Amino acid sequence: MLIASSGIAQTDDASPEDLMQRLNGVAPAAVLENATLLNVSAEGEMTTLREGSNGWTCMYPGTDPMCADEAAMSFLQAWMNKEDPPQTLGFVYMLLGDEGASNIDPYAEGETGDNEWIAAGPHVMIVGSEAKPMLDAYPQKVPSGANEPWVMWPGTPYAHLMIPME
C-alpha cells in the first residue's frame, strides 16, 4: 500500500524525466508537474531528483507510486521509522493503485492466511492522527469489492482512510 520493499521500478540512476514518465497518472497533472521528485533506491534510500514548488512529493517506491502532501510525508516517515505519527492531517494520491498490503498489519511483507491482504486499485488516502475522529464512521474491514471507503490498519497509530477512485 504505502512504501514497498520490492526492487521493481527502483533504480539508483533515475533522471527526473524518467521518474516523471513512470509517475504519469499517479496524481493530477498539476500536482505532479511542480512536485518534488524522490528516487527510492532498491535499498530504500531516498534521493531528491528535483525540488518542487507546490508542497507535494512524488515517488515510486517499490511497486506503489504515490504523491503525498507535506503532512502525509511526515506521517509516512513516522510509519517507516515505527514512530508515533505527528498531529497532522495529510493526503496521498495513488491513482495507479498498489500491489497490495495487509489491511491489519502495517509491517506485513507479504500475504498470509490471516493478514487481510488487499491490492487496491486507484485510490486516495487521508492520513495522520488528526483523521482519527472521522475513522469511526467507516468500515474497519475492506468492503466487498473494495469499491467503498474503509479504514486501513485500524487499531494502530497508522490507521487511515482509503478512498477508492474509479
Rank of each mutant, 00 (worst) to 15 (best):
E99H: 14
E130V: 12
L2G: 15
W117D: 01
L2Q: 13
M20L: 15
E33N: 11
L49S: 11
A159Y: 02
W79D: 01
G55S: 05
A120N: 15
A68H: 05
D18Q: 09
T156C: 08
A146I: 05
P143N: 01
S5A: 11
Y138G: 04
T156R: 02
A35D: 00
G128E: 06
A4I: 04
L76H: 01
S102M: 07
T112H: 04
L38K: 02
G155C: 03
E109S: 08
S41R: 01
E99N: 15
E83Y: 12
L32V: 10
D114A: 11
G55F: 06
G55A: 13
A131D: 01
A146E: 08
S144F: 06
E83R: 15
Y138M: 09
V31H: 04
S144I: 13
V124E: 04
M46L: 10
K82V: 14
T112P: 03
P85Q: 03
A71Y: 06
T48K: 11
N24P: 02
W56N: 03
T11Q: 08
D69E: 02
D18S: 10
I8F: 13
E70K: 08
E43M: 08
A131Q: 14
G155Q: 03
S6Y: 07
M134N: 07
M66E: 06
T48Y: 14
L95W: 01
G113S: 15
M66C: 03
E45N: 12
P106H: 05
A146W: 08
Q140Y: 04
L135R: 01
W150A: 00
I104H: 00
M80V: 04
M80Y: 09
W56P: 00
E130F: 12
I118L: 15
I118Y: 12
L37P: 00
I163L: 11
D18N: 03
A27S: 04
G145Q: 11
S102C: 01
A131W: 11
V142A: 11
Q21V: 10
G55Y: 08
I8N: 13
L37D: 03
A159R: 00
G7Y: 00
N81I: 00
M46G: 02
A72H: 01
D136Q: 13
L96F: 05
D114V: 13
V124M: 15
Y93A: 06
E33L: 10
A101W: 09
N54F: 14
G121H: 04
P133L: 12
W150N: 01
C58E: 00
G90M: 02
A146Y: 10
G113Q: 14
S15A: 09
A71E: 01
A29F: 02
E99D: 11
I163S: 05
D84T: 14
F75M: 01
